[in-house]
Amino acid sequence: MRVLVVEADEKAADALVGRLGRHGHEVDRVDSGRAALNAWEQADLVLLDLELPDLDGVEVCRDIRTRSSTPVITFTAADTALDRVLSLQAGADDCLVKPYCYRELLARINAVMRRTAAPPAADTVLRGRLRIDPRSRRVLLGERVVEVTRKEFDLLYLLASLPETVVSRRDLMAKVWAEDGTNSSRTVDTHVSTLRNKLGDGDWIVTVRGVGYRLGDGTDV
């Protein structure tokens, strides 16, 4: 696995890079937020310290998440809930407080990678011009790549995996947001609205009033 370490403290970065390398990972290291935004696309996992010399680490995390489902684990030296909450709200998959136990970090890395990995038996779904690939977690509409977040992908893939089936908001919440403890149907509606904007014209996601949603065929409404 290729890991990007974003850490301004050279001593801490060298120690972490060395340990990850000894566990068989390919590791790249950068020491600023701008460098991270130029390097994260090559990584399978980003380990991001929130204290960076140029950019707010929370904003770096948010920028990555809006463009990709690449797993992100953040680190904070502040032993308060605020940094952890902000980074999780920005899309981080986990957050550790420094100093942390390296074995705990490895355990959390393994947990995050299991949680975010596409199911090995999952198949690519084709629906007209829409192609949804769970292995690469890519969505294509014709030749255009549709940039989606992790939750948007999970939501779209679930609907696409159940053709002609109306999925209730409750079932969407249970299957897509189960680990987050989110229970507001407004969350589903917001993600559906964002997906519709990204997919463009056509009824790719059809509202069944009073029930939920189903995948459409892209025909103009």
Rank of each mutant, 00 (worst) to 15 (best):
L45H: 01
T182Y: 14
R169W: 01
L20E: 01
A111R: 11
R67C: 14
D54H: 10
D93P: 03
V30H: 05
C61Q: 07
V192A: 03
K175T: 11
N110K: 11
L155I: 05
K198P: 06
P99V: 02
Q89E: 13
T70P: 00
Y102Q: 13
G128M: 14
R114A: 09
M173W: 05
A107D: 06
A118P: 10
A78H: 05
G210W: 13
T207K: 14
N197E: 15
L86E: 07
V166F: 05
V3R: 03
E104A: 14
V46E: 02
Y100P: 04
R34P: 00
G57E: 09
L52A: 00
L55R: 14
R108C: 07
V208M: 13
A107V: 14
V139E: 13
S69C: 13
P134N: 08
A36F: 03
V221Q: 05
Q89F: 06
L106T: 05
T80H: 07
P163D: 14
G218W: 12
V125L: 09
G181K: 08
E7C: 00
R84T: 09
R135F: 12
C95H: 09
R19M: 12
K151L: 12
I109D: 05
L50T: 01
I205F: 01
P134K: 07
R209K: 15
A121Y: 12
T74K: 02
D93W: 07
D49H: 08
A36G: 06
T219Q: 11
L159W: 09
V206C: 11
V27H: 04
C95S: 15
T219L: 03
L82V: 08
D31I: 11
T70F: 02
V17I: 04
S69L: 03
L172K: 08
V5S: 04
L155P: 06
A39R: 14
L88D: 11
R108K: 06
D28H: 08
A178T: 05
R127W: 11
R65S: 04
I73K: 03
D189G: 04
V58F: 12
S68H: 12
G33K: 04
L105E: 01
L96P: 01
A12M: 06
L20I: 06
G212R: 10
A8D: 15
L16R: 02
V17K: 10
A118H: 09
D133P: 09
D49Y: 00
R67F: 03
R62P: 05
V211C: 12
L106D: 10
L155N: 01
L195A: 04
G21M: 09
P53F: 08
L86G: 00
P134Q: 12
V221R: 13
V211Y: 15
A35H: 05
